[in-house]
Write a protein that binds this DNA or RNA. Structure first.
Lengths: 246, 246
DNA sequence: ACCATGCCAAATGTGCACATTTTTGAGTTC
DNA sequence: GAACTCAAAAATGTGCACATTTGGCATGGT
């Protein structure tokens, strides 16, 4: 029962540039927040029903997410939430670690007081969130610290790659990271800033390396734990319901 | 008349998994080989005609290339071959340089005789192509050298990123690089291998850095030179013409 | 001449109707 | 009961018919 018709007063086959983005963001956020269990099938008809848009729009978004390797697309068999192996996760963390070593090496030519000030201010935010016990903010700021570092180089390619790695690790963290600990220990970020303040790149790299190895060592496999919902309706419940199934 | 059916013997609206890929590869190769002039408009109807496929297929490929940032997509205005600025090119080279510094740092833990042997064999190939005067092979092998380096780490994320950077720079080279010189001087690649053989990572990084700076210094802006064809028909002339316009 | 305006052809974007493929499940056999 | 068959149902993939938007060109006013 899935042939969908528009039922809002709007015109029929016309451009709606924002709708694509809205659906994309909704699914992306669900992925980033780990609301979608690994291996879950994302079929087009039910999603079109939930979001109240045409199936082709869903289709486009699904294929876009597949191209970004955020969904696993199998020809004629639809889209599934990928099930990253522990090796996949290690690859992402290792890539981040290797990249940051290169960034810090290059960064020595860009260090100035303004940068140190910005990083110091960021550390203060991180500490505030930690003492406040705001885990969501901690995770976000923890990632933002590394974004600040790479942004200091002003290289769009590197910034994009790091942002991609970061978003990938945040998906994986929800699978493999024990939920009780914070992702990055603030002290280690502080140590990196201190090394940069002293223009001691070698020490900054060493600290960064230890920092990542520390995070990687905490990863472990949780096969049984399955807190994510199976029901797509409830996952996307925050979505404005244009026409929900009755 | 009845609802229109297909006139060629083939089935009607049916799956052809290879056709997508063929069109994608054809346009991608044209881009990589610099056959498409920067700024050229890639409209759907003429391409559909040239390749003898439906417009939707062209459409899908165009949007895919746009998602990979190989084409510039403007809503309601179609696809254009991007015109990279000199800064864009520098970003790609700098990213490659920074990444390779990190790779070499990490590589010290992976160096073994087998790796050195593989790199040495590759150098021989490069030298052979150079003395043979085979510029196309030189460019290809020159890039492959850096791929070999990153592949030694066995990290899928890093390998993918480097391959992406490499394909991007090969597009840009056709715009900004003087066509007479080879891309990478073989001697510099040899120097990197020598440093790795001696397990001297610091020297390897220094050589690599100089290597890239050397390449970057040769970049320059060629505004007037416009050897690429304006006519899509001739660019894709190698394509099997299913149904060419008459 | 030059710029503003309006019209028309061409290009892009989208829903829909199937064709094709996969999946499901009931019925049958061993 | 397990496995196998096979037909129906559901899901994916694709061409096509418009709706919408853009760009160019002619026309007319200043």
């Amino acid at each position: 029962m899935a042939t969908q018709r528009r039922r809002d007063g709007k015109a029929n086959g016309k451009a709606n540039p924002a709708e694509d983005e809205a659906v994309y963001q909704a699914i992306l956020h669900a992925l980033l927040e780990g609301k979608l269990k690994a291996g879950v099938k994302l079929a087009e008809p039910p999603l079109a029903d939930i979001f109240g848009v045409s199936r082709e729009r869903i289709r486009k978004v699904l294929h876009r997410l597949g191209a970004e390797r955020r969904l696993e697309m199998i020809p004629n068999r639809g889209a599934r939430v990928p099930r990253p192996t522990l090796d996949d996760v290690r690859s992402v963390y290792e890539a981040h670690r290797v990249l940051e070593a290169g960034v810090l090496t290059q960064l020595v030519r860009h260090i100035d007081d303004a940068l140190i000030d910005r990083l110091t201010a960021h550390l203060a935010e991180e500490r505030a969130a930690a003492t406040r016990g705001d885990r969501a903010a901690s995770v976000r700021l923890s990632g933002a610290f590394h974004v600040h570092l790479v942004e200091a180089l002003g290289n769009a390619e590197l910034t994009r790659f790091l942002a991609d790695l970061l978003s990938r690790s945040s998906v994986m963290v929800s699978v493999y990271e024990p939920a009780t600990d914070s992702i990055c220990a603030v002290d280690e970020h502080g140590a990196i800033v201190e090394a940069l303040r002293a223009r001691d790149v070698a020490r900054a790299i060493a600290v960064s390396r230890e920092h990542f190895l520390h995070v990687e060592s905490r990863l472990h496999l949780d096969d049984d734990a399955a807190p994510a919902s199976e029901d797509l309706e409830s996952v996307f419940s925050a979505v404005k319901p244009k026409r929900r199934k009755r």
